[in-house]
Design a protein around this nucleic acid. Sequence first.
DNA 1: GATGAATGAGGCTTCATTCAT
DNA 2: TATGAATGAAGCCTCATTCAT
Lengths: 206, 206, 206, 206
Amino acid sequence: MEKAKRKEREFNLRRAEILEQAEKIFAAKGFYNTTVAEIAAASGFAVGTIYLFFESKEQLYTAMLTEKLNMMYEGIRKAVGQEAGVFRKIEVLTASNFQFIESNAEFCSIFVRGDHLSLSEGSEALRERMIRDYADHVSFLEEVIREGIRTGDLKKMDPRMMVSALLGIINSCSFKWLTVAKEGSLKTKVPFVLDIFLEGVRQNAH
Amino acid sequence: MEKAKRKEREFNLRRAEILEQAEKIFAAKGFYNTTVAEIAAASGFAVGTIYLFFESKEQLYTAMLTEKLNMMYEGIRKAVGQEAGVFRKIEVLTASNFQFIESNAEFCSIFVRGDHLSLSEGSEALRERMIRDYADHVSFLEEVIREGIRTGDLKKMDPRMMVSALLGIINSCSFKWLTVAKEGSLKTKVPFVLDIFLEGVRQNAH
Amino acid sequence: MEKAKRKEREFNLRRAEILEQAEKIFAAKGFYNTTVAEIAAASGFAVGTIYLFFESKEQLYTAMLTEKLNMMYEGIRKAVGQEAGVFRKIEVLTASNFQFIESNAEFCSIFVRGDHLSLSEGSEALRERMIRDYADHVSFLEEVIREGIRTGDLKKMDPRMMVSALLGIINSCSFKWLTVAKEGSLKTKVPFVLDIFLEGVRQNAH
Amino acid sequence: MEKAKRKEREFNLRRAEILEQAEKIFAAKGFYNTTVAEIAAASGFAVGTIYLFFESKEQLYTAMLTEKLNMMYEGIRKAVGQEAGVFRKIEVLTASNFQFIESNAEFCSIFVRGDHLSLSEGSEALRERMIRDYADHVSFLEEVIREGIRTGDLKKMDPRMMVSALLGIINSCSFKWLTVAKEGSLKTKVPFVLDIFLEGVRQNAH
DNA sequence: GATGAATGAGGCTTCATTCAT
DNA sequence: TATGAATGAAGCCTCATTCAT
């Protein structure tokens, strides 16, 4: 069945087109100020057609969010996996996180706006999936840190906390870049992040 | 005019009551899933009365947000101002930030839900005010850091970035506490935050 | 509280006005071909106002139906209660049933159209109430028949069945009058109904 | 043209299959809560294919209704035609009416639900055909009654009214059986129907 | 001042029908 | 001939806001 395959490919193309347009509009106006009609118009379909691909506006929104985030998670994991040594791993993790944010600034501004997850009661399942995905990602990073402790490269501290701190620093920089000014590349901040995270800010007396 | 004063005091009391109730409901259900009627019912006023105190639902929301945040900013600044020495200042800053979050967990969950700022087009002014308030707070913290550099206690790095990193770590811990589990006090994390921020996580060979 | 009373009276007046207009339109076009907007326009209110009086289109429909039917039931029971003797009671029952149908031909044509009860899944409760009301009415009539049997005026047959038969004859006549032609008064058929129900159609040999 | 014939036969088979499935779904959910897509799925055709057999959802519905009803009418007429004597004819008419209802309870529940005829404005023609079919049936029964009067078996009353009464009694019993409880066979009620219709319910003094 | 009934624009979603393949 | 993806009109309902009392 060649035909079935082509059908499926076409279906996915259309679906992706809708997601792409939806992303732009959601990013610009937020979930509640975006109408399904707008998304339909932007992606060149009729309103009803949107519902052939997504059950509801909310499901469309969540699909866009989770798929994009998983793309980011996956990119980071793959990049980190190819490196050896905690320090290199942490560096690459930071760099690829920044990379994703630069390449998807529009998408990321959704998080700056922040209406992710302020959805209605009905979509607990979808919400939980997002949280689970995030938790999985954190677990992965924890393992990286744990390994660094085992090899004696990192101090013996609670790895959960260390991951929290690292992601906090990364997010804080990203947030600033997204909101205040996008001039310059985020990537130039990598050494700085590593420096603070690894060495701290205290001036050591000598 | 004694009377005018009492009037004003009454006015402020009522206004505060509305804000207090609104905070609870917004925190629980998000901006878009909260109706003005609900807020009115909760605060014991008629719907129309709400509009004697606030121009619109959005303005009510923003007022609540900015006033509460400024309370936090102010608390932190005051606490920090009373201390001497960068390290003490940073410690107190972290502690009072955590303190506020613990005491206002419900309010803070608004940020976890995240619909702050995903407001409609019309309210640029309000949004900007929030951003400006935040920027002011960051400036204050920057000054603290700068002073630490001047005294030789902190490394010579970009103070903006250092503030970013510190706030990132604090926020990350707060976020985790708010979402994952509220067991235990956030304040126990203060030493950890300081340790990472000041000393980093690298195990120093000796 | 004089005011509260007047408020309630006003509320009921408006509610009745909506019901009255809704009845006409539902009768003319059926439940599914009638829009809430039409009802609103006909009764001189805004769409939203309709929802101050009724939870949903369906609930409005059911309210209209049950209230009107109960009016009929009550009218019949009262009329029957004032008479003595089964035969008089049956006569009056038939007559007042016809009376109601003549006076409410428009309403009754709803049953000819027939979309009562073909409502969505959600309104089981409302549907059941209608059935219960009907059952109550049948019970009342059964008691009348039972009494007639006890006094020896009627044959010893299953009273349920006798009520069924009587109502069947009445309904059949009503249906014909409503659909085929409304010329002449339904009431002229009373003697005929009684004759068939009481004496049957067989020509007795003598 | 052998081929043309087979084609036609095939066409009718498919059409019948659609009608059969449609009947089940309409009976279960009513006209407005049934979608063409459901009927298509149930009968194993594509949505578009349904429209090769029926002009519209409404026409499909009406076709199903009229064809099934005509089946009933025909069955009754055939059965009645084979009998001699009014009383036998009336008995057989009642019995075969009940027979049809028992065998087609699902279909008949459409009438209990009641959305027959509450169709949109456009289908006057279809509606009228149903009414005409019913009128034809009534005419046939009238002739039976008239004959009974002629032979002196029945009283000299308006035959239309007598038919109305008989059908009223039959329908009333059927309705009760369909709604309240399907336990036991409807056919056991035949003698009762005949008894009331022929002899009435009055206890004759002697 | 305070009220809360009334408003009506606008959103999401459904589904009968069509038509290119 | 058969398909089923695409359409888009239309319906129900919500809720921020107003204004007569």
